[in-house]
Every structure is written in C-alpha cells, then in structure tokens.
C-alpha cells in the first residue's frame, strides 16, 4: 500500500514538472515570438523611414548640384531599372517604385553610408533632376594618359569631394594604396572609365565615353554595346550606372518627360509666335518652333531608338533653341524658358 502511495506521489511530482515544462515552453515561445515580431516591425519601420528620406531626395524637382551623405543602419539597397520598364529600389524587403525618377546607381549598395548627388538635366531648358547614388565602397577609375588628360580632369573636377577621393588614375589599383591590386581590396563596386580613349585590355567592368565638343555636348557611350548621352548630367549618369540596361531605362524616363516638356513648350511658343508676329521677336519664335518640333520628333521615338544621326540632330536643335532664347532675352522679348 505504502509502495503504491509513493509511486502515486512520484507520478504527481513528475506530472508537475511536465506541466511546468510545457507551460514554461509555451511562455518562452510566446515571448520569443513577440520579441521577433517587434524586431521585424522595428526593422521595417527603420527601412520605411529610410525609404521616406530617400524618396524626398529622389524627387524630379531638386536643387541642382547638391551632395548629401546619408547615414543609416547597416543595410543593403538594391536598385533596379530594366528594359521592361520595371523601376524600383528595395530596402530590407520593402520595395519602392520609381516610375518617373531617374536614379543612376550600382545594382546594390551595402553599408551604413549612402552618397547622393543631384544634377539638373538641361537640354537646353531644365527637364528634371538626376540622382547619382554611390557609397564609400564604390570606386571609379578614370583611365588617363596624355591623350585624354584634360577631359578626365574636367570630368573629375565636377565630382563632389567625397566622391572624387574614390578615384584613381591607375587602373586596377586601390586608390588608397596604389601598390595593392583592386581584387585584394573590399570595394563592392568598381568601374574603369575611358574618356575619349580606346579601351585597353581590362578584366574589370568598364564604360567607354566619347565626348563630342565638351561635357555639355553629346557623344557615344559604350558599355559593351553602344548608347548615347546628351548633356553633362547624362554623361555622369553613364558613369554611375550599373550597366547599359539601367542607364537606358533611366534615360528613357527622362526622355518621356523631355517629350512632354518640349510639347508644352511648343504650344506656348506657337502662342508667343502668334502674339508677336509683327515684331523683331518673330523670327526667333519661328526658329524655336522648328527646333522644338525636331526635339519633339526625336524624343517621341524614345531614348532606345537614338542613332548617331538623330543624337546629332537633337544636339543641333538644342543648341539652336538655346541661341534663340538668348536672342529673345537680348531683344527684350518673352523668353522660351
């Protein structure tokens, strides 16, 4: 009888322990899940705040030539702009669409610092602000020799200080320590830029840019395939872009807006032409209409359809429009832009 009572007490004790174990386990799981949920919510909140901050800087209407250093938590930002028209960036699983904002950036940026530089794209009137994104782990190598030294210096001089420190004239070498090979450093993104110079034998990603006239002019860009630039901002766009696809996708967005603005300007200029038909301003309005029609025709085809002839024709129209505007201003007539 005593043996049975002892056994029953032992079972009771064991049952108590099992009960405490199960209840404790459930509490532990509950508390852990609450902590995990809170952590994930907090991460999402921080990412959302970062996206909100970046969005305000990526607006198409920004002050030109502003450099910003954005401090954030350790994160990875993925930028995407494809020929199918998908354009967005992603921070910790939160995706933000960028259907109109041209953002020239490497495919992915990791770390705690983001560099953001804005520049107006003008042709000849302001079309929109371009955003160039980079970070301390991104490096640009400008290949130079006596053949292109002046142009390289011109392009580099425009870079903000924080970005220009990540430059080197020695291809394949760490800019901080020229004796160390690039492959042995921890840079995430690097590219060799050949300005008005044929590509030398390189194993690194590169872009070859042939500038006609000056940086504000036009020219060819070669990312293993041919493309074009028009104006300084699009030249820098090519330097900052991951590849041809993302460069052309962003330029396509810019061209869409260029088409709208040139069309609106054409309507307005036609009104001005009619209003000033018997004055000394008339000829310039007439010229402006012709040039705006050329711009409109070229932009309607889209950036991807540009050819060597059409980019040259576009550049001439842009120059001619700028001259017409200057003449109008000199003669005291209402200007075009």
């Amino acid at each position: 009888m005593i043996f049975f009572k002892k056994k029953r007490a032992a079972i009771g004790m064991q049952f108590n322990w099992i009960f405490v174990l199960i209840a404790g386990g459930i509490f532990l799981i509950m508390i852990t899940s609450i902590i995990m949920t809170q952590q994930s919510a907090s991460n999402q909140e921080i990412s959302a705040k970062l996206i909100q901050k970046l969005n305000s800087y990526f607006k198409i209407e920004q002050e030109s030539n502003v450099f910003r250093e954005i401090k954030t938590y350790q994160t990875v930002i993925d930028f995407r702009c494809t020929e199918e028209g998908v354009s967005d960036y992603r921070v910790s699983g939160i995706t933000q669409q960028t259907p109109v904002e041209p953002i020239f950036a490497p495919g992915a940026l990791s770390g705690q610092t983001i560099y953001l530089w804005t520049m107006d794209w003008k042709a000849p009137f302001k079309i929109m602000s371009f955003s160039f994104v980079s970070n301390p782990k991104t490096v640009f190598y400008f290949y130079n020799d006596s053949q292109n030294e002046d142009m390289v210096r011109k392009v580099i001089n425009e870079f903000p200080k924080n970005l220009s420190r990540n430059m080197s004239y020695k291809v394949g070498k760490n800019p901080d320590n020229p004796d160390v090979d690039l492959g042995e450093t921890n840079y995430d993104n690097y590219k060799v830029i050949y300005l008005n110079h044929d590509v030398t034998d390189t194993e690194y990603p590169y872009v070859e840019i042939t500038i006609e006239n000056d940086m504000d002019g036009y020219g060819e860009i070669f990312f293993e395939e041919e493309s074009y630039f028009l104006g300084k901002a699009s030249l820098y766009g090519a330097i900052f872009s991951e590849d041809k696809e993302s460069y052309e996708c962003n330029m396509e967005k810019a061209f869409k807006r260029y088409k709208i603005l040139s069309n609106l300007m054409l309507s307005r200029t036609n009104e001005l032409k009619a209003g000033y038909s018997y004055s000394s301003c008339a000829d310039n309005y007439y010229n402006a209409v012709v040039n705006l029609k050329t711009i409109n025709k070229t932009t309607s085809l889209g950036f991807n359809e540009l050819t060597e002839e059409s980019i040259e024709e576009l550049y001439k129209a842009v120059n001619s429009l700028e001259r017409a505007n200057d003449y109008l201003a000199l003669r005291g007539c209402p200007v075009l832009y």
Binding site: F125, K126, I127, I260, L261, L264, S267, R268, E271, L272, A329, P334, V335, L336, Y337
Partner: peptide, 20 residues
C-alpha cells in the same frame, strides 16, 4: 518647369506662366 515663370519674368516664388 511646366508651370513656372521663366527666369526673366519671375515675379516671385509662386509665379505661374499663363500660357504654360
């Protein structure tokens, strides 16, 4: 730029061009 007055005719920050 699709609304703003041109630099030469701007009368202040919130100036909009009628023909625009």
């Amino acid at each position: 730029p699709e609304l703003k007055c041109s630099a030469f005719s701007s009368e202040g920050v919130s100036c909009i061009d009628l023909y625009k």
